[in-house]
């Protein structure tokens, strides 16, 4: 009884999924390419037909995760009509996505450790820079529309907003359940933060 032969793109995806499960369960260093191959139900040489090495596989896994979450968040933000509503929605979407994809997001954060190797360390930093650009853009747009205070230091406030959003990933990675206990409480903090920059009256 042979393994089912999958088309290359489907096989790649199934290896990426296997890597997510393996990393989420065992951490980055304890999860080897041979563990991932076993998890995917293939041999290691087959894995190497699709990915150069562990770094290449992990990078592909990360890119897939970032692309997926970005698409999801963007879709939800675009449904909102004002930039401030959009920012609130982005935070809620990230929360919802994390709750729904606990092990994928865990694997993403577990793969960040490769700080030392140039290639791998770039992508998490780039992701945060892009997030910062997007948040800053929405705040500036709100300033133009007169809903956010003109004297707000957008770049700094964007980082404050991002820290309140990013902790959801960190809590998930560390296995801390507190923020997931009460979404209403968390969203209240997001709303409070946004309310401090809002033009009132």
């Amino acid at each position: 009884m042979g393994r089912k032969r999958l088309p290359a793109d489907k096989r790649r995806l199934s290896i990426i999924k296997a890597a997510e499960r393996c990393l989420a369960r065992r951490g980055y260093y304890s999860c080897t390419t041979s563990d991932i191959a076993a998890e995917a139900g293939i041999t290691e040489p087959v894995l190497y037909q699709h990915f150069r090495d562990k770094a290449d596989l992990v990078e592909s896994m990360r890119n897939a995760a970032v692309e997926d979450i970005s698409k999801y968040v963007t879709r939800r933000v675009l449904r909102k009509s004002t930039p401030l509503e959009g920012l609130r929605e982005a935070a809620e979407a990230i929360f919802d996505y994390t709750v729904r994809h606990r092990s994928k997001m865990r694997a993403y954060y577990y793969s960040i450790p490769e700080l030392g190797s140039g290639g791998l360390r770039k992508s998490p930093v780039q992701r945060l820079h892009r997030l910062h650009e997007a948040v800053s853009y929405m705040l500036e747009e709100a300033q133009r529309q007169g809903t956010v205070k003109k004297d707000l230091e957008v770049a700094n406030f964007a980082w404050s907003f991002i820290s309140l959003v990013e902790i959801i990933y960190i809590a998930n990675a560390l296995g801390l359940e507190v923020p997931f206990r009460d979404k209403g409480e968390y969203m209240d903090l997001i709303e409070r933060l946004l309310a401090t920059v809002k033009v009132t009256g």
């Binding site: 990393l23 989420a24 369960r25 065992r26 951490g27 980055y28 260093y29 304890s30 865990r106 954060y109 577990y110 793969s111 960040i112 450790p113 700080l115 990675a173 560390l174 296995g175 801390l176």
Partner: peptide, 21 residues
Amino acid sequence: VVNTISEAATREFQENIEGLL
């Protein structure tokens, strides 16, 4: 810290961090 975060996959370390925090 950044290098070890993936160790949070193990229950022992998870509890360890949770206790500290």
